[in-house]
Write a protein that binds this DNA or RNA. Sequence first.
DNA 1: TCTAAAATTTGATTTAAATCAAGTTTTATC
DNA 2: GATAAAACTTGATTTAAATCAAATTTTAGA
Lengths: 226, 226
Amino acid sequence: MIKKFTFNSQNILNELPSCDREFLENIMVDKKYRKNQPIFTESTLPSGIFYMQSGKVKKYKMDNDGREQIIYIYNAGEFFGYSSVLSESSYGDTTVAIENSVISFITIKDFNEILKASSSFSRLLLKSLSHEFSVLANLMAVLSQRTVRERVALNLLILHNKYKVDNKPNTYIMLSRSDLANMAGTVVETLARVLHDFKHDKLISTDGRKIELLKIERLIQVANFY
Amino acid sequence: MIKKFTFNSQNILNELPSCDREFLENIMVDKKYRKNQPIFTESTLPSGIFYMQSGKVKKYKMDNDGREQIIYIYNAGEFFGYSSVLSESSYGDTTVAIENSVISFITIKDFNEILKASSSFSRLLLKSLSHEFSVLANLMAVLSQRTVRERVALNLLILHNKYKVDNKPNTYIMLSRSDLANMAGTVVETLARVLHDFKHDKLISTDGRKIELLKIERLIQVANFY
DNA sequence: TCTAAAATTTGATTTAAATCAAGTTTTATC
DNA sequence: GATAAAACTTGATTTAAATCAAATTTTAGA
C-alpha cells in the first residue's frame, strides 16, 4: 500500500541518457526561494518550467472565499509548472515555497527543444505527471467521501513519505497546522482536534510543528485505504 | 470560465503529423462495449492503452466500503489507460462504459514504439494528461471545500460540456442519479434534493434521467467558481 | 402491455464537522 | 531575553449533510 505514496524522485534525471541530462543541466538556471515566497500565481502566464533541486513547494488552488486547497507538494527531484506551457494557457494554480528551496528554471524555448529532441525526456514527464495524477486521484476519492479523521490520516502518510530521507531513521513532518488543514480539506480547529485524538491514541507524537508517525500500520487502518 | 471545462477532444488525432496518425490507425483494433461493461479493473495489469472512438466511459476509484468516486469521464477522442503502462504498475482505478461505446486498443509494444518514434504523440499525451489533471485539481478543490450544492453545480457544468455535441442546440446530460452523486461525492438522497432545488429555481429541467441546463450563468455563480 | 425490480424522491432524525469564541502557546523581532 | 503578534488549542453551539425509512416513479424483461 505504501507503494502508492512512495516515488523515489531523488535523482530522477539519472533516468535520462547522459546527453539529455547534460543538455538539461546546461540550460537550467538555479534560483533560491525563501520560505513563503511564491513561484508562480494562478491565472498568470508561464515563461518556462521548474525543477526542484532542494526544499519543498506547495501547489494549491484558491476559491472565491479565500480558502486554499493544497493539491500537491513537490519535493527535490520533481519537475513542475509544465502543464500550462504544454496547453499554452495560464496557470491554473499557485505555487509557494514552504521551505527555503533551490529551484531551477528552464525557458519555454529550451523546454520545447528538449521535448522535441528527447523521447526519454517526454517519457519522464509523462511518468511524473501520471504519478501526480494517481496521488491526486487517490486523494480526491478520500477527500470527497471520507471523514476528516480518515483524510488527516491519509495526508499524514503522504507527508511522511515526502519528508522521509533515505538512510535516515528519524523522519518527522514539519508543516503549519493551516497547511495541513488545507491538504485535508478541513479547518484548523478540526485538524487540531484530530491530531489531539491521534496523540491520545499514541499514533503520532508532536513537538511544536514537528509531527512524528509512531504507528504507521494503525494509521493506514485509520485512513481506511490500502 | 467555461474554457476550463471545454476541451474539444474531437479529432484529437488530427493534431498529429499524418504519418503518425496513419501508423496509429493501422495498429488500433476496435471493440464494442455495451453500457455498464467494464474495460479494466483496479489492481489488474495493463496490456495496452485505449482510445475512445465513440461513447462514454467513467473512471472511478472504489473505497473499502464500496463507495465509488468518479474521477473522470472520457469522451470520444480521448486516450486512457496509459498511466499504468508508463509507470509499469497495476491499474489504480476502474473504467466502465456508461454508454454503448466503441473503443480502440493499442498493445504495449505498439504504444512504446510510437512513443519512442513520435515526439508529437508524446506531446499529445502530455497535453491530454495535463488537461485531465487540471480538471481533477479543480474538482478536488471544490469537492473538499465546498457545499454539496456547489459541487453538484460544478459537476453539471462539466457534464454539460461532455455531452455537448458541436452544432447541435439541445444538449442534455443523461446519467444515473447514483453516477451523478458519485461524481459530486455525495449520496443519491442529497443529490435528489439538490436537483429538486435547482429545478425549483429554474436552473435546470429534468425528464427522467435527462437533465437540461437552463441557466448556465447562474449555475456558474452557484458553483462559486470561475 | 403487464409486472417485478430497480431507481428515484420525499420525510424524519441523527451526526460529523464548521463556526464562533476565548484562552494558551509558539514564533519572530527588536 | 522581553514583547507583540501569530499560530494553535479547547469549549460551546450551530448547521449541513448523512442515515434511516417509506412511498413513488421509472425501467426493463416476459
